[in-house]
Design a protein around this nucleic acid. Structure first.
Lengths: 353, 353
DNA sequence: CCGGTTCATGTAACCGGTAACATACGACGC
DNA sequence: GCGTCGTATGTTACCGGTTACATGAACCGG
């Protein structure tokens, strides 16, 4: 009654100041606050820590939210809290990729923990990975998931410097940037070689994608097959990543032209193996009697080929789940497990070998 | 000389106030400004509109950036400018998906225009699409790309309300939320039916994924094959999306058990068609003589199957490119083209029919 | 009935930038 | 010599939230 009425009559008056600036036009916390008759802090609390506000206020805020269709601006929230709830995963490519399981698991697991996953396609081109990184770091994600270890020194440097938790996946290295969930591609190649030897294979060939990890498998395969000394007589066909079915067919065709006596093919990707199988069938080369075929990835079609495809299986889902857990644990300062996990791989023996 | 020296001696003193707040610890614009000896606005200008600052200042700023390894905080920038340079694409799934081309094209095209693409996996589950939307809108993206039209009314409502430019893709509807780049799935089904009829097919079967768009193709196929009246005698096998090769094999196996006399299979996805082809080969059913097979998608393996697969091709790259262009035009207030584009599809005739 | 808690809410500052407007200064034309 | 304009930089407010701390009322035991 006694207060000067002016302030009471013009309570909120958003653009009273002389500076005109486009506000986004959306409903904001302040709008809600005005509507409910409290300050924005109270509204913020009602939304984030409802146990701190009275039941009455809470209900009125919730009603206002429904009425206005308010969606909180996570951008502003992130800036203020310096917590972005955003995780970025960089993958080389989506096409027919073994990473799909991992990405799926990441999405699910992170969503459950209240984080959103942003996927960046880096391509198999290493220079692009570098360029992307600035844009990624600039978004101040709470964590970064890398598929494969990054090899550019400047990129590793930058990642270390920015202090964002990083998980490298699908590979192993002695000096990870931060955390790591992977397995040894060398071991995969070696295991494939050893296995084929136990099957009596004498003259294998290799069909491999061109990316770095596939090359590592190939190299180890060659070395293991020759008991340490690399065997230059083993024919190798390299195809551009990402590989496709036709590549596999053409590879076998080419191999048979030049090395008609091969008795096995180690394929660096299941899709290549499928191509090889189809070409073999087409030419009436019986698998596994005349030609043993082994793939890598255990993609969802591997068990349904003719004959069912033996392959080196990597548990992509587990990699994703683990990476997510480790990342979230770290972000939320929980004592995590080992920062380096080797998930290994397994040889799935089906009938193609 | 005459001014009180206190202010001169304690110029920047970041945490002079009694309020202690964790600042992110990273290098900020203010840090740079202090280093160079100008205000942060000048530094901001040096970085964003270099033509507005003197050469001398520009050089000193650049030197400081190099020295400190400064990365601008895009979060803060977005908030201030209400321009996020972020585009979100919602796709049902990555696995073996026809959308891959589109996503690739989007990434490339948008990157060129200075935007980053965030991919959200919605799953084929419609309810999840809804839930994701809040998180997406909350990030205040500059634009949203949807694969397939969204059908939940509340979701459409929300998208319209938030004022963010939206492109729906891979489908057609009379009332798009905003913009649209797609084609008619009904027409695809109809075209497949008409085509098979010209090939003398009398007793076709359908193998189709369970998602809405595949169902639309199937329905139109059935209707077209019966000249308007739906034919209930055409056997239909529905498999869960995303479909895989084994689904195709099992489907044909099941079909032959119950309808041994079918003379064609219309597959709602190329991978299903591949399964059908493999099962046919396995059973010595010659394609196309005894059984004609047609797929959908023209995935990269379609031309390399035995026999090469006839399929309904959709130019996913074009969809992506167009969507990106339309979005950017809209965002940057350039007069764009038509807001609704039908990119059509084409029938790729290979030897499986 | 008083000091100490607890609960609900408020105030001011701050996150790291950008927008809008203001100003200092030199060049230029007449 | 003076008004005008352009250039380089500064000042202030603001984007939409969150954090740290303060305050006021209700409650509570002694």
């Amino acid at each position: 009654m006694s207060k000067p009425p002016t302030t009471l009559l013009a309570p909120v008056e958003r653009s009273a100041s002389r500076r005109a600036r486009k506000n986004s036009g959306r409903v904001t916390l302040s709008d809600l606050a005005a509507l409910v008759g409290v300050t924005k802090v109270t509204v913020s609390r009602a939304l984030n820590t409802p146990e701190l506000v009275s039941v009455d206020t809470l209900e009125r805020v919730q009603a206002a939210v429904r009425q206005t269709g308010y969606t909180p601006d996570l951008i502003a929230g992130s800036l203020a809290s310096t917590r972005s709830h955003l995780i970025v995963a960089l993958i080389p490519a989506m096409a027919g990729s073994v990473f799909q399981e991992t990405v799926g698991a990441l999405t699910t697991e992170l969503a459950a923990a209240g984080y959103q996953l942003l996927i960046g396609q880096s391509g198999y081109d290493e220079s692009r990975e570098d360029a992307l990184l600035d844009a990624v770091i600039g978004r101040r994600p709470a964590g970064i998931v890398l598929t494969g270890v990054i090899h550019s020194q400047s990129a590793r440097q930058k990642l270390r410097a920015c202090g964002i938790p990083v998980v490298e996946t699908w590979d192993l290295t002695r000096e990870p940037i931060d955390m790591l969930v992977g397995f040894s591609h060398e071991n995969v190649g070696r295991a494939a070689a050893d296995f084929l030897k136990t099957r009596g294979v004498r003259r294998p060939a290799v069909v491999t994608p061109s990316d770095r990890r596939a090359q590592a498998r190939t190299k180890a395969f060659l070395k293991a097959f020759g008991n340490g000394k690399a065997i230059s007589s083993i024919p190798v066909v390299t195809v551009e990543s990402p590989a496709n079915l036709g590549d596999g067919r053409r590879a076998l065709r080419g191999l048979l032209d030049t090395h008609a006596d091969i008795d096995a093919v180690f394929c660096g990707a299941d899709i290549l193996a499928l191509g090889v199988l189809m070409e073999a069938e087409y030419r009436d080369i019986s698998v596994p009697e005349k030609l043993r075929v082994i793939g890598y990835g255990d993609l969802n079609f591997a068990k349904d080929t003719t004959p069912p495809l033996s392959t080196m299986r990597v548990d992509g889902t587990r990699i994703g789940t683990l990476a997510a857990t480790m990342l979230v644990d770290r972000i939320e300062n929980r004592a995590g497990s080992e920062p380096i996990v080797d998930v290994g791989f397994s040889l799935i023996e089906r009938e193609s070998t």
